[in-house]
Design a protein around this nucleic acid. Structure first.
Lengths: 354, 354
DNA sequence: ACGTTTTGCCAAAACGTTTAATCACAAGCC
DNA sequence: GGCTTGTGATTAAACGTTTTGGCAAAACGT
């Protein structure tokens, strides 16, 4: 208890306390602590100020700083419904870590999916009141969306959707390429009869994955066979029923590409009930790399991962770029950025020998 | 394009703009907009100010307000590794929604699990620099933890662990009761030979679930049978191996309580390989209600849910209470708050008839 | 020794609010 | 008619920084 440490209960030490203790002006303190360029201070005082600041346990008040510099070093993350998608946490994580890298902090607000546009606008406003330097608007996947117009007053980027007005830069997963790669993987393993168990409800992702599937076939020189393209509800049960149908034919496919990992789980059950072994009798692949399914299932599921983390990181990275170049070059970004969806190889694909 | 709307590009309207436009002082504007008590303003001017403010699209600058009132209306969420636990998103969500309810916003910082105590302290400091009104420290489950000492300078609560110094209020899931309830459910269904497939690595949760299991047995009047208590790695494969062992005996259990849902998945596979049907031949239950496993598996898994959302909400609720009563009653909270883990009944339990 | 530059530092004005302290004025009371 | 009391609004001082524009003194060149 000899207590070389500073008192725990410190009555808030401000920049002038430091100045007084160091025998200089607050101006000087500010300059040396911020290493303000084009400013001159002797090495001696610099050291003194710094050590005094440390001893006193000075921490700047960022509100005050922000007030003066009109920059809060905060970026706002506006998510519509984190709840629905379990991987959304990865978006937050990616954004957070990239933000930390730039010495920014993340303020998050979650809009309910069913809340109207007004609620969303109010949320955007709340962020702006806090003087955030920029806003990330993260959506569950839509094709296009019209961003709250308050977002036009501040640098903004969009995750998971296109801005209808085409003014806010957007980032999306390149689902098509991911799907094509997956098909290529199967084709390389000698599969020619590759079925696609699509989701029956129409969202951008289904389109992307379907075109990727078709592109993959084409690139592998496999003719399209509509008999092998089916769809069901995008849950385990949907995968079960469609796979049951697919695998019960005499000319059954040697591989099934499921719209997502949950459907793949259903496919596993179907195969099992029919006495087919995975991957020896039939290869199965999914999409999403949904933790913890893909790794926990037996055999572990080969699938493709969505770049949630990367999209979050991309968002704050381009946002900071946008903020820097702010008034200078304001560009309409017509094309969205597509981030790759890497295929992750596990155990559910085998060489085809039929 | 008749544009009754306010200009999109507004050069920042402040409180004095409103004052000028309404022909009153900024004081008055502040008073009416904040509905400051003990202050007198005529109905007429109040209306005028409000309408002018709306027309001008005035949004207060919260930084400035915070500077003056020394309260930021932000609460900091310090999570150690959101990544590892997929449900952690629910904590954030719960905290966020409760925060919204109190007109607070959430600033989040994520510390890496492997980052040292110093990094954690720096993160806490970053939050404090931002003048957050309080801090939530959310951990993956530990038994005890010593919170960064900067947290002692500001109202704080702890999620998922106990403060070693016993000064920070904490909230934890009541795993034991959840486990006991689950055993009660099995006992009510006529099961007497209930196995427990524990996790072999020792964390607080394993303890809690084990004591819950034992308590449940006791309350059901079932004698403890150590033959039925096994353990394995807390993954699907661990559940598989232990269940294989359990189910291959002549006096095999009629129900298996798995440490978590992932192990339950492994148990499913073991049962299947042995030709046992779930739940007819053997009932299986898990723990965590881990999306999307529990609902996607066939048959859907009966399990118990962790109150992540509720803990997040509890945290900001008690934090606000703490902030209000701040200087007045500062209490050492010796006992942690335990939040119930509800069992969610699905399809993997059947009446026992052996 | 005298101008000029360089060096080291500082005073004061912002930034956009809230709030304590007043103030002008009308009304009420005897 | 003077004294108090209420009413509606204002003035000015914070809050803790950053930043502009300077100003003395020292160093320098001749």
């Amino acid at each position: 208890m000899s207590g070389a440490e500073e008192e725990a209960i410190t009555p808030k030490v401000g920049i002038r306390d430091v100045a007084r203790a160091a025998g200089v002006s607050v101006t000087t303190v500010s300059h040396v602590l911020n290493e303000t360029p084009h400013t001159r201070t002797s090495e001696a005082t610099r050291d003194r100020v710094r050590s005094v600041a440390r001893d006193l346990g000075y921490t700047p008040n960022r509100l005050a700083r922000g007030l003066r510099t009109r920059a809060s070093d905060m970026i706002g993350l506006l998510t519509e419904e984190i709840a629905t998608t379990p991987h959304a946490g990865r978006i937050i994580l990616g954004a957070q870590e990239e933000a930390s890298r730039h010495n920014l902090t993340l303020a998050i607000i979650n809009s309910h999916l069913d809340a109207g546009a007004d609620a969303r606008r109010a949320d955007a406003r709340a962020l702006i009141e806090r003087q955030v330097d920029g806003i990330i608007y993260a959506t569950v996947f839509h094709h296009e969306v019209s961003v709250p117009r308050e977002l036009r007053a501040v640098p903004a980027v969009l995750i998971g959707a296109l801005d209808r007005q085409g003014v806010v830069p957007a980032v999306l997963p390149d689902e098509a390429s991911g799907a094509a790669d997956l098909v290529a993987l199967l084709a390389d393993a000698g599969h020619r009869r590759i079925a696609f168990a699509d989701s029956s409800i129409e969202v951008p992702a289904t389109q992307g994955r379907l075109v990727g599937y078709l592109r993959g076939l084409e690139q592998a020189g496999i003719p399209r066979n509509d008999q092998l393209i089916t769809s069901g509800v995008s849950e385990a049960v949907g995968g079960y029923t469609t796979s049951l149908d697919l695998l019960d034919r005499d000319d059954r496919p040697t591989a099934i590409f499921c719209y997502n990992d949950r459907m793949a789980m259903g496919a596993y059950r179907a195969a099992q009930e029919l006495g087919l072994r995975i991957p020896d009798d039939v290869s199965i692949v999914g999409f999403d790399d949904q933790a913890p399914i893909a790794a926990s299932v037996y055999p572990a599921l080969t699938t493709v991962a969505l770049p949630h983390y990367e999209m979050g990181a991309w968002a704050v990275a381009t946002l900071t770029r946008l903020i820097q170049s702010s008034s200078t070059s304001w560009y309409r970004s017509t094309h969205p950025t597509l981030l790759p969806c890497p295929v992750v190889i596990r155990e559910s694909v085998a060489q085809n020998n039929r």
